[in-house]
Write a protein that binds this DNA or RNA. Sequence first.
DNA 1: GTCTATATTCGGATAGAC
DNA 2: GTCTATCCGAATATAGAC
Lengths: 188, 188
Amino acid sequence: MDTRERLIESTRELLWERGYVGTSPKAIQHRSGAGQGSMYHHFTGKPDLALAAMTRSAQEMRDSAEAAFTGPGTALQRVSAYLRRERDALKGCPVGRLTQDPDVMADPVLRKPVEETFAWLADRLAGLLAEAREDGELDAALDPAATAAALAAVVQGGYVLARAAGRPDAYAAAVEGALGLLTRPKGD
Amino acid sequence: MDTRERLIESTRELLWERGYVGTSPKAIQHRSGAGQGSMYHHFTGKPDLALAAMTRSAQEMRDSAEAAFTGPGTALQRVSAYLRRERDALKGCPVGRLTQDPDVMADPVLRKPVEETFAWLADRLAGLLAEAREDGELDAALDPAATAAALAAVVQGGYVLARAAGRPDAYAAAVEGALGLLTRPKGD
DNA sequence: GTCTATATTCGGATAGAC
DNA sequence: GTCTATCCGAATATAGAC
């Protein structure tokens, strides 16, 4: 891995662990093993490097979600698989956590990957739920878009609860609660 | 409002807006109109002042939730009222946002009010859902604790989605999606 | 491309006068 | 209780040598 690459990966880790305001150029240099001059040679400054890191994390989030969405099973099963996918619940969502960073949200350029990623996710989930509804897997009375928003929120909120409790199973409980609501037989 | 009080209130605002790492003593002094010496007279330092602010915000969160929980209507209606309660979705949850703050979570003293608040909320919601289930308002197949976790997650995640989208209605969509799942007639 | 030196401001506080 | 002075290291770079 070359220097530029190590800088990006180290920044991704630090943004995940400490957020944007909590991540200093010095910490990035230290973790990546790159020197001051090296960092400023490859990137114009902290925002530039953070953008590269955030863009990659956003892409990775989409890829791993898409892997679940295009996996085996019915539409509803694929949504369930996405929700139950292995996650490091205590670390939180590398993209979602940026939403709490004032300096990220204040800068349209930094904000864009975050905004786009969640818009994509909501849209993708809504499509799958619409498909499930057409197939009779899901109650026709449910609004796919609103239901999709609820599920995306359960994931993000599940991270918050897990971190608050200090226990990953708080995330699992939220997801199972949501799936209990989503998949219970409607004609019972 | 005396100086000590202004310091606490200003700190609450700043923690809400910028988080713990993003809030400097200087910024607190500036917003509160208190001087350096004044701040260090009333509090031993930033963590001490933050603890006072966080404790108050946590109490406020409980109080406002409790107001909805003990309001009029059936158990399920009170849960719905809590979810639909007016919120400044773009600002996020003043307590939940602290879970993203590494320096808060690393300090057991600072972490405690956050942890306790969400434990209380989950417990309270689970109790109401159990009540709803006994009253036949809620499907007997649903686990009250897991369902409660899902609802608490929808609220916290709803804030994340609203901030990501830059639109408060993303929060409302998540809540309505969750309520759609929770309250749809089971015998349809 | 990487290193070292230097610069400015901020963060987080202590000390002591008033 | 509040103010001002002072301190030391971190944050975020820029400049120029190698």
